[in-house]
Design a protein around this nucleic acid. Sequence first.
DNA 1: ATATTGCTTATACAAGTGTCTAAATCTAAA
DNA 2: TTTAGATTTAGACACTTGTATAAGCAATAT
Lengths: 192, 192
Amino acid sequence: MKYDLTKKPTRGAQRTLESFSTTMIALLSKEPFEKISVNEICDISNFPRATFYNYFDDKFDLVAYCWYVIAQEIEVDQATGLKAETTLITYFDRLYDVFKNNQMLLDNVLQYNDFSGQLVNSFINYFKNKLQEILTKSIDYSKAGLPVELIVDHCSQTVVLVLKWIFLKHHEADKQRAHEYLEKLLNIEHFI
Amino acid sequence: MKYDLTKKPTRGAQRTLESFSTTMIALLSKEPFEKISVNEICDISNFPRATFYNYFDDKFDLVAYCWYVIAQEIEVDQATGLKAETTLITYFDRLYDVFKNNQMLLDNVLQYNDFSGQLVNSFINYFKNKLQEILTKSIDYSKAGLPVELIVDHCSQTVVLVLKWIFLKHHEADKQRAHEYLEKLLNIEHFI
DNA sequence: ATATTGCTTATACAAGTGTCTAAATCTAAA
DNA sequence: TTTAGATTTAGACACTTGTATAAGCAATAT
């Protein structure tokens, strides 16, 4: 990302970011990601290509920013000080809500993009990485004597696996059932 | 893949496939995947671009074929009729060997490509998908009452997680230790 | 109000991509 | 060995990409 998201954006920058991300999200429901060109995004957003490249490295970068925007909608406090197991469930629930709130977008996207393609992958990975960051901070030892990093990766990928199963492969399940899946697969109490 | 790998290739086709894949594998140790162009591959291999596109859709397609070639080196019989748990370990061991045999290539690749980038991902996913196919055939029920497809995905991704940990993140571990990781993370006997 | 600074934009460039044609060449079977 | 069918190839096409430059514009501080 060329644009620095930490500093507060000017009104203009806000409009630009918003415009590009809205256009991208709209296009994702209309054509496969690989057919979307920076030209098209700029034509629709009414900005010159040069402006696009002032903000983003490429369309992957923009789409990652879109996930960031979507994640913002929900993600709030950092919920510190909880024990690892609780943190995991807490964030699982939040991600469950993000996926649920964007079910429609996901459905549209899957009409044009492979389940295992780059686009869906970037979506999934965005949230997996978020979770990894969070878990890394809250897990610091392992009952089973396994390397912590390995456990963090394992938990994160299992969380998104369950979410994929429910929301991308359409095996609807309420939160309770989702917890059940997660607990059976993870056997959390075994290693943290 | 434009070329049909099921029919037996003519001598010419064999030469062409071999030439392109050798070139790609060589280039992977010299520059990041995104810098590798079809033009460059063709120049080095001494084939015109048109020929490249007779065989492959794009460079992703070629690189997937490279993984196919690498997998061929090892993968032999289909080891049918074993119980699911044994199948899992059997194929884990084979993948362990594939990764070990290509340690040098992997090391080189990681000099130029992100651990989470497209290239490494395509490598990992190739083997994850293979394993999924195999496990799907050998697992048909679940002790824990979980959907079988979910279990298959979970096992496959955990297997490649351990291999990533050992061979891509360089936490060397012999097969025995690798089994230990796998068993602790998976708790196989809990659900199959 | 004016100068300063920084972002936006028009335009151009050198490269790459994937497709298509028609001619040249190969190959496998009669 | 010949020939019909398939494959390879040269060349061109319309399009995309990411970068660079210099002109234009807008907000800020003096």
